[in-house]
Write a protein that binds this DNA or RNA. Sequence first.
RNA 1: GCUCCCAUCGUCUAGAGGCCUAGGACACCAGAUUUUCAUUCUGGCGACACGAGUUCGAAUCUCGUUGGGAGUACCA
Length: 496
Amino acid sequence: MTVRVRIAPSPTGDPHVGTAYIGLLNYAFAKKHGGKFILRIEDTDQTRCTPESAQAIYDSLRWLGLQYDEGPDVGGAYGPYVQSDRVKAGIYQRYADQLVNQGDAYYCFCTSRELDSMKARQRANNEPIMYDRRHRGIDMAEAKTRAANGEPYVIRMKTPIEGEFVYKDRLRKQATAKAWKEIDDQVLLKSDGWPTYHLAAVVDDHLMGITHVIRAEEWLNSLPKHIWLNEHLGFTAPEYVHVGLLRNADKSKISKRKNPTSLKWYQSQGYLSEALLNFLALLGHSHPDGIEKFSLDEMCRFFDLDRVNVAGPVFDMTKLRHMQGQYFRELSPERMRAEVHKSIDQRFNDLLPLFKERMAFGGDFVWQSEPFYADAVTHHADDLVPKGLEKAQSKMLLENTQAAIKRYIAGDNAVWDVPSLEALIRKLLEDRSAELPDATPEQQAQAKLWSPKNLFMLLRVAVTGKKESPPLFDTMVMIGQAKVIERLGLAQQKLR
RNA sequence: GCUCCCAUCGUCUAGAGGCCUAGGACACCAGAUUUUCAUUCUGGCGACACGAGUUCGAAUCUCGUUGGGAGUACCA
């Protein structure tokens, strides 16, 4: 039997580091056994999937060197490899109908409102939250008539009500056992006629000759449904293997709030794909001789699925960084040169538009952009005190602004771009300069300090060390939040 | 709430009943090299979650407790 494994990401958002992780495991397993590694795009959620995102997956996998033998943009004998194309071919509908005709699935006419109130009631009673199977016994002829009359419906699987589901995962000591009655009558075909993940994945894995499904443990709970589907569709089920989920430092499932998860991000930051891959390879798996640095090819030779850990490893950026350094310093002079060049170019391209209007010579860029490259800036105390202000007043303005920026960054969904920053600063000005009806003369005087004229110049000098610069907010964005905060602090020290 | 999964240094891991006073890597600390920094080298700190049981012997097997995670969608 030829090993055939797949990864089946959904093209929503940026390509995910978890996809790379599971991809690596599958790739290594396939290569180790002389099998095939396949990419399938699961875009059955019409509301969330985009073609750009699918393209980004192809690009990222190629960047990593996880080249698939079969897939949407490389073809293969089991295509199409994009589920939306397979929907159009009527593949899933056919199998859903088969189950209905066998009496293993049924039409359900519940509205989302109905389902919501069902859930609310169950939650209130501390009952398991699941579909109450109210349409399970629906008369087939009646159901078909209603459907034919245009009433929206879904197709649900008729899971057993008695007995137990038992499955032994090769990575787990004990078999998984679960009472069938706790397993939901899962929707297989949505009211838009498209399949859910469960139907689509099982059907495609069968049709594509997949022998082993190596996936993250978030799928473990739906395993009974998948095995059941295989059985009732008359398929020989692939072997399912569930590996641990990548985690944040707090052990929760890795998320972009707490970790960079976008493969595009790693690429743009200059991470070497070899380093990222090697780092990923060390999570949940290890070289039998304890070697920690190895190439993808080497990994494919020693990889052993039975040695994979099931506990979810914490994704530790610090160790990745170390690995990156190891690989980077070993780069050939040509490649190192190229990598450095890439970084310089990137920064340069971002910066150039800001200076476009204020240059007469190419050389102007060199001195004007200096604060954007420098680690720190030197402030002249005189420049930090706008005309008509006292030193202490300058300092107060800086302190308040720095605090406001810090608060903003600490909040959720803080975006560091020009509109947000401008909104933040303008709001600050507005709030502070607002005339209070019962303000004392001192308070009113304080409020007057908060003018754009005063604050903008002050910030410009604090952030760049110079009195002239590109537009303030563009400047702050490009210099970056960490340095902006640091320089605001340095300026305050200068005013002591 | 309900169901399932998991449990060795802060983190990634080695460890399949005696080779374990638990090994390696990252991080951290100290020292050496380096004009400085980085690199490199040396040393140090540091864990079998807890409690029973099985056994001559348990990190390794069993049970319980605790802790953590995931799932609970007409998302994947």
